[in-house]
Amino acid sequence: MPVKYNVVERKNPNDPTAPAKFYASAKADGDVNLKSLAKEISGGSTTVSDTDVLAVLNDLIKVLNRHLSQGKIVKLGDFGNFQISISSEGAVTADKVSSSLIKSNKINFRPGADLRDMLRTVKYEKYNK
């Protein structure tokens, strides 16, 4: 099934006087939760139950939290890597930089080879309301 997209109109933030242009914007087509992923994984070529898979995925979330909060990059092989990044206000000198200048943080995900390959071959379809 192809990825759906909407058409959205956007102004250029660098030039507010420029005419707006139209862009494709990915449209989510539902969601999949952890429980249904566990059922799908257990129904594949594995001999473990969906409860066992769900327990492992829940533990994965716990250890991701722990290691990311310690500043580590979590490498999950072919799946990809997770890492925290931060955004801060600037300071005049290096010695004036402190954690109080940090404005926000987020978790970056860098997909592994299989996911990058999928991105190169994914098909798209315009969303019809």
Rank of each mutant, 00 (worst) to 15 (best):
L76M: 14
L68C: 07
N33K: 03
Q70A: 15
I61F: 05
T46G: 14
S69V: 03
S87N: 03
H67F: 14
A94Y: 03
L54E: 11
V53R: 04
F79C: 08
L101R: 02
S45I: 12
S25D: 10
S25H: 07
A94I: 07
A55Q: 12
F82L: 09
D59E: 14
I86S: 01
R66S: 14
G112F: 01
S36G: 03
L34K: 13
I73S: 12
S85L: 07
G43W: 09
V97P: 00
D29S: 13
V32I: 11
A94S: 07
V48P: 09
A55M: 08
T51D: 10
K96D: 02
G71S: 08
K27V: 00
S85V: 04
G44T: 09
T93S: 12
K39G: 09
T51C: 07
K27P: 01
D78H: 02
G77E: 12
S87G: 05
T46S: 15
I102V: 10
I86M: 01
D114T: 11
L60N: 07
L54K: 07
L34F: 08
S36K: 14
V63A: 09
V97D: 01
S45R: 11
R110K: 13
N105F: 00
D114M: 03
D29M: 09
K75R: 12
Y23R: 05
A113W: 03
N58D: 13
G30S: 06
I102M: 00
F109W: 05
I61E: 10
K103F: 00
V63S: 13
L76F: 10
K106A: 00
V92T: 06
V74R: 01
I86P: 03
N81F: 02
A91R: 08
P111H: 04
L57A: 07
I86Q: 01
S99G: 04
T46I: 10
S49E: 10
H67K: 12
S45L: 14
S88F: 00
L76T: 13
L68S: 05
E40P: 03
I73K: 15
T93L: 07
T93D: 08
R110M: 06
K72A: 13
A28L: 06
N58M: 06
A55S: 15
V74S: 04
R110T: 11
L64C: 08
D95K: 06
F79D: 14
E89F: 05
R110I: 02
D29F: 09
S36E: 15
V97N: 02
V92A: 11
G43L: 15
V53P: 07
L64V: 14
L54Q: 08
Y23I: 05
V48C: 13
H67N: 14
Q70H: 07
P111W: 05
I84E: 01
A94C: 06
V97A: 08
N65R: 10
L76V: 14
K103C: 01
S88R: 04
A24F: 09
L34N: 13
S25I: 00
V48N: 15
S88W: 01
S69L: 10
N105P: 00
Y23V: 05
V92Y: 04
L101Y: 03
S42R: 11
I84Q: 04
N65T: 15
A94K: 08
H67S: 13
K35L: 04
I102P: 00
D50M: 10
S98R: 05
K27W: 00
N58Q: 11
P111V: 04
H67R: 13
N108G: 06
